[in-house]
């Protein structure tokens, strides 16, 4: 069965700047009906029609998962990026009709946890906002540690501190505040699960420290969405559809497949879910792997590629699509 996701037609109901970098978007169903509920940590894939070109970017849902009237996402402007966030910031206004996917959760809570320890950096706060509302409604035991650059760039920090005064700890980089990670980890009762969402450096730091302190891998959850990176344009031959296609500088391989009407499955579009895995038939050149799905060994073997984030540099690439 081909993947792709069940879609929802929505209308932008509100566009609200949160600070210099982050803007919040609210979607309601265009037909006025209820939206599906979701589980904290889920994302939706937003379709953007940008100058005749379709861009699909995943964003974590941050609204109350039980709220069926509206979904909310927050988008951080990335001037270096390929333009998805710029599109959201500059072209999306109240009243615009858009298409988004049904919620998909690749960062779900382990509901067996005796305690949920959440560690957020920057815009990584958004999935936790939904998770905290879910847990608050079901008497879950959670605690948030949230690092922000400055108070003014700390999206939702104040609001969260007010709502959950005993469970939220904010750290301001500009004031030299940092999470005392070692002591935080040592003190956790058996059955605690850690969730990390933020920059790669933060994820690696927490995972490394936890592993060194003997935490089991299964108790550590993290979400790192890669935005597909730009790169040198390249050409790909598709063995099944018998086409040769060009991948542009600001386009991912997956987007190029879609632009050429090639049926290509996906879920996360961020190198995490494995759904887009594609066999490499022939490769004369270097695969630039950027996913977290394949193992290092599989990366080296060069028999598989994840088109949502990975690229190619060289003479010939033939894929099994």
């Amino acid at each position: 069965m081909s993947a792709g996701t069940a879609k929802l037609n929505v209308t932008v109901a509100e566009v609200k700047p949160i600070n210099d970098l982050v803007t919040r978007f609210k979607f309601i169903r265009t037909d006025g009906g209820e939206l599906p509920t979701f589980s904290g940590g889920a994302h939706t894939v937003v379709e953007m029609q940008d100058d005749g070109f379709t861009r699909l970017n995943p964003y974590s849902l941050m609204s109350d998962p039980a709220d069926r009237d509206a979904y909310m996402i927050s988008v951080r402007r990335d001037d270096q990026g390929r333009g998805g966030s710029k599109f959201m910031h500059s072209k999306v206004a109240e009243g615009l009709e858009m298409v988004i996917s049904n919620p998909v959760n690749l960062f779900s809570l382990d509901l067996r946890a005796k305690k949920h320890l959440m560690i957020a950096g920057g815009i990584g706060i958004t999935p936790f906002m939904a998770q905290m509302q879910q847990l608050a409604a079901t008497n879950g035991h959670f605690e948030l540690h949230y690092s922000v650059r400055t108070a003014s760039l700390g999206s939702y920090a104040e609001q969260l501190s007010e709502r959950f005064p005993n469970r939220v700890n904010i750290y301001h980089d500009d004031l030299g505040q940092a999470i005392d990670l070692e002591n935080l980890l040592i003190g956790q009762p058996l059955g605690t699960h850690i969730y990390i969402c933020g920059p790669k450096g933060m994820i690696d730091w927490v995972r490394g420290k936890a592993a060194a302190l003997g935490w089991p891998r299964e108790a550590i959850h993290y979400e790192e969405f890669l935005a597909p990176a730009s790169g040198k344009p390249f050409e790909v031959r598709l063995a099944i559809s018998n086409k040769t296609i060009q991948v542009g500088e600001n386009q991912s391989l997956l987007e190029a497949l879609e632009a050429n009407d090639v049926d290509a499955p996906y879920l996360c579009r961020g190198g995490a879910c494995g759904q887009c895995e594609t066999a490499v038939v022939e490769c004369d050149g270097e695969l630039i792997h950027r996913d977290h799905w394949l193992s290092d060994e599989q990366h080296r073997a060069g028999k598989l590629i994840m088109p949502c984030v990975s690229r190619f540099d060289g003479k010939t690439l033939v894929l099994d699509r």
Partner: peptide, 10 residues
Amino acid sequence: TFSKAHMGLQ
């Protein structure tokens, strides 16, 4: 022993 233990117990 388990009820008093912390994460990291081997």
